[in-house]
Computed example of a mutant assay.
Amino acid sequence: MGLEKRVERLESNFDSLDGAVRNLIKITGETHQIIQENQRENRIRFDQHDRDIASLKGDVADLKRGLSALTAATFAGFKRCDEQHADVLAHIKRSDEQHAKTQAQLRRSDEQHAKTQEQIRQSNDQHAKTQAQLKRSDEQHAKTQEQLKQLELLIRQLHPTN
């Protein structure tokens, strides 16, 4: 093989290699551009994500504050309910004690009423006996009066005075 052919072949290989290198440079440049565009898009997306995350962090902080306020209000409400419940229980206890006192007073009043009723009954019985005695006494008095009248008549008949 001659030197010229070798040089031609080398030049042909060089041209081929040169074309391949240029093609590789072109592809590398395009790839580099795509990478840069992707990086720009990613940067934009990351910036948006950062803003979204910052917004979410603010929302979470607001939710935490709201939840804390709600928890405190709920706790205060439960505490008020417990206090009111204790007040109601104390009121019920006082009412029960007052009711027991009233019941005892009513029992004593009923007992006193029963005694008074018995005394009234006894008094009525005594009154009836007294009335019967008075009736008998009146009848006896009437008889005595009649007898006195008859005696007076008899005396007048026996001793006439003028």
Rank of each mutant, 00 (worst) to 15 (best):
A86E: 06
L63T: 03
A69L: 06
F78A: 08
E83C: 00
A72E: 09
N42G: 05
F75T: 05
H49T: 12
L89R: 10
R80H: 13
E118Q: 09
E118G: 03
S109H: 15
G66N: 08
R108E: 12
S68H: 02
A72S: 11
K115P: 01
R43Y: 07
K57A: 11
T116F: 07
R51D: 11
D52T: 10
L67F: 06
S68F: 08
I92D: 02
T116L: 15
R65G: 10
I53K: 06
K57Q: 13
D62S: 13
D110E: 04
A104D: 11
Q112Y: 08
A72Y: 04
R40E: 08
R45P: 00
D110P: 00
H99I: 10
Q98I: 08
Q119P: 02
S68G: 15
I53E: 12
C81K: 11
E83T: 05
A73Q: 13
S123L: 14
D59F: 05
N42H: 05
D47C: 01
L56M: 09
K101Q: 15
D87S: 00
K93T: 14
G77R: 03
D82I: 03
D52W: 02
H127G: 07
S123W: 08
Q103I: 15
K57F: 04
F46K: 05
R51F: 08
Q98H: 11
Q98W: 05
